[in-house]
Nucleic acid binder design. Structure first.
Length: 614
DNA sequence: TCTCCTTTGAAGGAC
DNA sequence: GTCCTTCAAAGGAGA
């Protein structure tokens, strides 16, 4: 019998896409933030719900839910969910995936949200970017779904807590209940800050920061839920290498913070032999008194080079060859007309200030490399991305604050600089990949998504009610993909991965509450241990799990980490054809699949995985 | 030598 | 207002 435990493994096809549905632990106040998003999709829902509309009156409104979040879990609700799944499956099989009102070519799944009054529809994303388009209503969690950045694509869904009534109707009697759940009835919501039993090398703990940083769940409001701007943490929470003063423009840096290796390293790459400080000239001019103080962040243009040391954010061939080159401010250069191409080429390249994640990466990369013995940055970045999501609010807030300071200083140093200035300055990108990006995504489901498979899995208990996740596999055909595949997570990397999973899954990162706190615009769910209905989000996991190597792409798709074994991460999804006969009572294959796989009981969030059509 | 991969976030342009 | 694209870092890998 196929299993879907992320901890085990199934080398998903090179084009597989996986979506992890995680418990975000969102608070009910988040619901109000998503009302607008829900409205935006009302028309779509209304066109899909049909008969379900008639029963909508019985469903709690958003406001009601906000005021009196009371889980609704009964057989009728589940029947509705089943019907909606059936409808979703039917439409999908008909080639008519749900269409986004904003991007008609972008499909999304509409998942009934019948049981989770806490569900902050639309606030599911680990990043603000992926939140867009999300939404839902008291009936639905609309999961929109396609993100395409560069060549990464993943579905995005949000799944309500599927609270099976009494666990009688649907819960398979064969589904064993984990002993620890039976004993204490504690929801098996694995929060990211829980140390993974197999991950002793987690490095993003408070050890890097102030030792007194309280647990995130004790101070869950460090990010402004409205503005998304992280609240300035207490200085004691901040990295000693990036001391920040709350509310102050400037701050007193560690006198030698810029000179310290590793954690105190510069923010911008510099030529070999360069100065290891983000703003060396300023640091020297200011005698290291204040790295960000206003009096020093607006130096005269020529001061940038008066020391002969280039700004680390400036990368120019001239600087690389002649560090003491011209004295013209890069801003002035950027603004000055460039009649000749050669002159343009000589313009210093003022790099973008690093964002919070980049700062985090810069700091943690070395550790991850050391711990995981990985060298490929793509793989390292995947791990870092996971860890980033596993960070507590406070920890992430530190980097957001750092990034904010960096941007502030950068803008003051180069007031005329625009990120647009760097467009096209990087190594020539393959423009040929650009046109196919959106069309590929737009037609992705219509042409490549053949079917999907669902596995319902026991998650744990909320109170005394069993909860379940769904794991959905989308059958797709990614033969159109031609890009080189990056390395996948491999078993040996598990030791380096985030402790998101309670069972070693590298795919699901279950119950990572930081899914919503990756961005300051998406305040994190708390790490609260209180029993909240599980809301599920998605993660772009699938690309790193390759089940089927693509023709001509095998080298880059499976086990490209050299010595890394190629043990599959996920087991093979359950095909419809393998459904147990006893589970085929429902007319809906979707339902059948859900029922059939119900006996799988691992404490794992819903995951949506696409697989290539064989 | 150049580009891709891979991650998240910020910024700017397009609509 | 929303969405998309690009770039920031990193270094191995492939073309």
């Amino acid at each position: 019998m196929p299993q879907l435990n992320g901890g085990g493994g199934d080398d998903l096809g090179a084009n597989d896409e996986m979506i992890s549905f995680k418990d975000e632990g969102e608070q009910e106040e988040k619901i109000s933030e998503n009302v607008s998003a829900e409205r935006d999709l009302d028309d779509v829902k209304s066109s899909l719900v049909n008969e379900s509309e008639s029963s909508s009156d019985s469903e709690p409104s958003v406001s009601k839910r906000r005021g009196a979040p009371e889980p609704v879990a009964d057989s009728e609700s589940y029947d509705k969910a089943r019907d909606y799944f059936s409808e979703a499956l039917r439409r999908q099989q008909d080639g008519g995936f749900f269409k986004s009102p904003h991007y008609p070519g972008y499909p999304f799944l509409m998942i009934p949200d019948l049981t989770n009054p806490y569900l902050p529809n639309g606030s599911l994303s680990p990043s603000a970017r992926t939140v867009r388009g999300g939404g839902g209503s008291s009936h639905f969690t609309v999961a929109r779904s396609v993100r395409h950045q560069a060549h990464s694509r993943y579905l995005q869904m949000k799944w309500p807590l599927l609270d099976v009534p009494g666990s009688a109707g649907l819960k398979d009697s064969r589904t064993p209940t984990p002993g620890h759940l039976q004993s204490n009835k504690v929801p098996v919501v694995q929060h990211a800050h829980h140390v993974h039993p197999l991950t002793p090398l987690i490095t993003y703990s408070n050890e890097h920061f102030s030792p007194g940083t309280p647990p995130s769940h004790l101070s869950p409001e460090i990010l402004d839920p409205k503005t998304g701007i992280p609240r300035t943490p207490h200085p004691s929470e901040l990295s000693p290498y990036y001391p920040l003063s709350p509310g102050a423009v400037g701050s007193i840096a560690h006198p030698l913070g810029w000179f310290m290796p590793q954690q105190g390293q510069h923010m911008y790459s510099i030529p070999p032999g360069g100065f290891r400080h983000p703003y060396p000239a300023l640091a020297m001019n200011a005698s290291m008194s204040s790295r960000f103080s206003p009096h020093m962040v607006t130096p005269p243009p020529h001061s940038l080079h008066q020391t002969g040391i280039p700004h680390p954010a400036i990368v120019s061939p001239a600087i690389k060859q002649e560090p003491s080159g011209d004295n013209i401010s890069p801003t002035m250069q950027a603004k000055s007309p460039a009649p000749h191409k050669k002159e343009e080429d000589k313009k210093p390249h003022i790099k973008k200030p690093l964002n919070a994640f980049m700062l985090y990466m810069k700091e943690m990369r070395a550790k991850v490399v050391a711990e995981c013995t990985l060298k490929e940055s793509a793989a390292i970045n995947q791990i870092l991305g996971r860890r980033w999501h596993s960070l507590s609010r406070e920890e992430q807030a530190k980097y957001y604050e750092l990034a904010r300071k960096e941007r502030q200083l950068h803008s003051q140093l180069y007031p005329g600089w625009s990120a647009r200035d760097n467009y096209g300055k990087r190594k020539k990108r393959k423009r040929e990949n650009k046109p196919d990006s959106k069309p590929e995504v737009s037609n992705f489901f219509a042409t490549k998504c053949r079917s999907f498979e669902v596995t319902q899995r026991f998650s744990g208990f909320l109170g005394n009610k069993p909860t379940f996740f769904l794991q959905i596999y989308l059958s797709t055909d990614f033969s159109i993909r031609s890009k080189k595949q990056c390395v996948q997570y491999l078993p040996s990397e598990k030791m380096c991965d985030s402790p998101a999973s309670s069972h070693g899954s590298m795919l699901d990162s279950p119950a990572t509450p930081s899914a919503a706190l990756a961005s300051p615009a998406a305040p994190a769910a708390t790490h609260s241990e209180q029993a909240q209905p599980l809301s599920l989000t998605t993660k772009p996991e699938g690309r790193v799990h390759h089940r089927f190597p693509l023709p001509g792409k095998a080298s880059g798709s499976i086990g490209t980490s050299g010595s890394q074994p190629t043990t599959p991460i996920l087991t093979r999804p359950i095909p419809f054809t393998s459904l147990h006969p006893s589970m085929l009572s429902s007319p809906s294959p979707f339902h059948q699949a859900a029922l059939h796989t119900h006996h799988l009981f691992q404490s794992q969030p819903l995951s949506l995985v696409t697989k290539p059509t064989e």
